[in-house]
Design a protein around this nucleic acid. Structure first.
Lengths: 145, 145
DNA sequence: TGCCATAGGCACCCAAAGGTAAGAAATGGC
DNA sequence: GCCATTTCTTACCTTTGGGTGCCTATGGCA
């Protein structure tokens, strides 16, 4: 495989992630704020959320069933639920067209785009270190077989 | 609050994340590899894993009870379980000192450090956009009260 | 003699996440 | 007049995550 997974991100998207990389040295922080951030990360680091985020990032506006088909293995219930949460958090917009049969479009907001950029590093890490992790697991499992 | 949460990362750590930001334009990818990456992300994006990762990143080597005290709200069971998984994945080393009472040290491996760097962008995003998300939620909830 | 501290293992139990399935609403096409 | 289509909602049931409590080993110390 000459071209690994990291190619899933366009150069422009990766460049956009750079805005998250210029900061000051560490200090102490408000524990209330820390709890909120932890809660937010827990919310947003969800499996389905990450997959839908990436999907809309690379394919643009999609309707309900298109997302459902693209995100392999998701049930209708989780699809609705995840999309609703993401809409509530301001990550995507939900546009209902008053036609029959119903048509609903989903697209990322700028906030959603920025989160996608922030997650970019994690995707790249995962695809780069996939083999390393599998090696580590094999060695760990062999240790006390 | 003059100095926001992003200060939790030292400048050097943030700089280390930059290695994840130079890549080629997107192409298609092997669905088998994609599934593996998704599984790995699901494993690693776990709440306790992220908290322990960040803790060891900023405080270095810690023993079992120290991690337990620092990660607020974690049960002993989840602590053991999460540490064991992270060790299996090669993210940290577990050093047992044959003394009484037992003493076990945990420290990140270079792989663990690199994952921490990759997650850095997500932490920064969360602390930057905390208020934005809360606003979005408030507006969403008010829409159909 | 007997209690404490440390890093777990193990078993039981509850709550929550998530899957399955059925139904609703509206209308153009047959 | 009936059916298909699309985007959900709701009810029900199973699976999993995670908590609690009890167990161990051993040397130091009161």
């Amino acid at each position: 495989m000459a071209n690994p997974l990291e190619s899933r991100f366009a150069t422009a998207e990766i460049a956009a992630a750079e805005q998250y990389l210029d900061h000051d040295p560490p200090t102490e922080l408000d524990p209330r704020v820390e709890r909120l951030v932890n809660e937010l990360i827990g919310r947003v680091a969800d499996k389905w959320t990450m997959l839908i985020l990436e999907l809309l990032e690379e394919r643009g506006t999609l309707r309900f069933t298109e997302v459902g088909r693209a995100v392999e293995g998701i049930s209708q219930k989780m699809l609705t639920q995840t999309l609703r949460q993401m809409e509530r958090d301001g990550l995507l917009t939900r546009t209902v067209h008053p036609v029959v049969p119903p048509r609903v479009d989903y697209a990322l907001t700028p906030l959603g785009n920025s989160l996608s950029a922030a997650f970019c590093g994690v995707w790249v890490w995962a695809e780069r270190n996939l083999a390393t992790v599998e090696d580590a697991r094999a060695r760990f499992d062999a240790r006390d077989a």
